[in-house]
C-alpha cells in the first residue's frame, strides 16, 4: 500500500523544526527513522498533514558525554547505539537490549529516541530507558524542558511530547557499578515482545544492594516493578531472587490479546525477571 498524501519539511535546525510544527498544526508529525511510522502510513492507520523530517539536523546525530551521563541525539540509530564506543563503555544494558530490537535493516534506520517517542508499551527500549533513569529533552515553542522517563510515557502510543514539540535527545546516566540484562520473550524472531524484562542491580558484598526492574508490554505503558525492586534489595540467594521475581506482576494490568493472555504474561514476567536477575550474579 501507499501512504496518503502529506506535505514534507526537512528542517536543518531544531528551531526550524519547531517552527514548522507550530505552523503546520495538530496533524503534523515528526519523522526520525520512520520504522514505526512508515508502516502505519502504508496501512493508512495514520494520515498526517505534514511530516517534519529530523534527518537533516546534523546535531541530532550526536552522542556526547556530559558528566555522569551520555546524551543521545534524536537521530542516533539503533545501529549507531550498537557501535558507539561511549555507549558500549557506559551503557552496556542499552547495547544488549538494542540487539533485540527488530532486525538489522530496521536497526539501521530506526532511532533510540524515536522508539521512546513512539511510546509503544511492546517496544523494548522504553522499559530499558525507565530502569536506566533516562530523561528526555523536549523542545517546543516555549523552549526546552527535561522530562524523566518515569513521567514520559502517558498511555498506549502516547508520550508527554506535544504535537508542536520535538524530542531532541535522551540523557542517560552512565551505568557505573550497575549491571543490567534484558530478557525478551517473543514467539518468533520478528515478533513483538510478549513480555520483556529489563533488570539492573548494584551489588554489595555478594548480595544485591539495589535493583531496578522495568517491564515491557505489561500494561499500556512501560512499568517499574517496585515491589520486586524492594524485595530484591538484600537478596543473596536464588530463592530470595525467585521470591522477589514472583511479585513482579503485582499491580500490572497486561492485556489479553492475540499474542498471549494476561495470566500468561504475568507468569512469564516472573520467570523472565528471575532469569534476568540471576544472570547478573
Amino acid at each position: 500500500m501507499i501512504p496518503p498524501s502529506f506535505d514534507y519539511a526537512a528542517p536543518t535546525t531544531v528551531d526550524e523544526a519547531v517552527g514548522v510544527l507550530r505552523d503546520a498544526g495538530e496533524d503534523a508529525k515528526v519523522i526520525a527513522g520512520g520504522q514505526s511510522l512508515i508502516p502505519l502510513l502504508r496501512l493508512r492507520f495514520a494520515a498526517p498533514s505534514t511530516l517534519v523530517d529530523l534527518g537533516g539536523i546534523a546535531e541530532l546525530r550526536q552522542v556526547r558525554e556530559d558528566g555522569d551521563a551520555l546524551v543521545i541525539g534524536a537521530m542516533v540509530t539503533h545501529a549507531s547505539v550498537l557501535r558507539d564506543p561511549l555507549i558500549n563503555e557506559h551503557l552496556p544494558l542499552l547495547v544488549s537490549a538494542t540487539e533485540t530490537v527488530a532486525d538489522r535493516q530496521v536497526r539501521h534506520r530506526g532511532t533510540f529516541a524515536g522508539s521512546l517517542a513512539h511510546a509503544d508499551p511492546a517496544g523494548d527500549l522504553p522499559a530499558v530507558a525507565l530502569v536506566l533513569g533516562a530523561s528526555m529533552e523536549v523542545v517546543g515553542p516555549s523552549g526546552r524542558r527535561v522530562v524523566p522517563a518515569s513521567e514520559f510515557f502517558v498511555d498506549y502510543l502516547t508520550s508527554v511530547v506535544a504535537p508542536d514539540e520535538v524530542l531532541v535527545a535522551v540523557r542517560v546516566p552512565k551505568q557505573g557499578s550497575w549491571v543490567g540484562a534484558y530478557e525478551k520473550f517473543n514467539r518468533v524472531a520478528q515478533g513483538w515482545a510478549l513480555v520483556g524484562v529489563a533488570a539492573m542491580v548494584r551489588r554489595d558484598n555478594g548480595s544485591i544492594a539495589e535493583a531496578r526492574v522495568g517491564l515491557t508490554n505489561m500494561g499500556s505503558t512501560p512499568l517499574r516493578a517496585t515491589a520486586t525492586e524492594q524485595a530484591l534489595a538484600g537478596a543473596d540467594s536464588r530463592e530470595a531472587i525467585g521470591a522477589a521475581a514472583a511479585r513482579v506482576a503485582e499491580g500490572t494490568r497486561p492485556s489479553d490479546d492475540l499474542l498471549g493472555s494476561a495470566d500468561y504474561r504475568r507468569h512469564l514476567a516472573g520467570v523472565l525477571t528471575r532469569r534476568a536477575v540471576a544472570s547478573l550474579s
Binding site: V188, A189, Q190, W192, L258
Partner: peptide
C-alpha cells in the same frame, strides 16, 4: 509451532498482516 489464521467473534481476520500471521524466519 507458529502459524494460525484467527478470526474474532465478529468475523474480522485478526492475523491480517505479517506482524500477526507469523511466518518463521531463519532464526526460528
Amino acid at each position: 509451532l507458529f502459524e494460525e489464521a484467527v478470526y474474532d467473534a465478529d468475523g474480522n481476520l485478526m492475523t491480517g498482516t505479517f506482524v500477526d500471521y507469523t511466518l518463521p524466519t531463519a532464526a526460528d
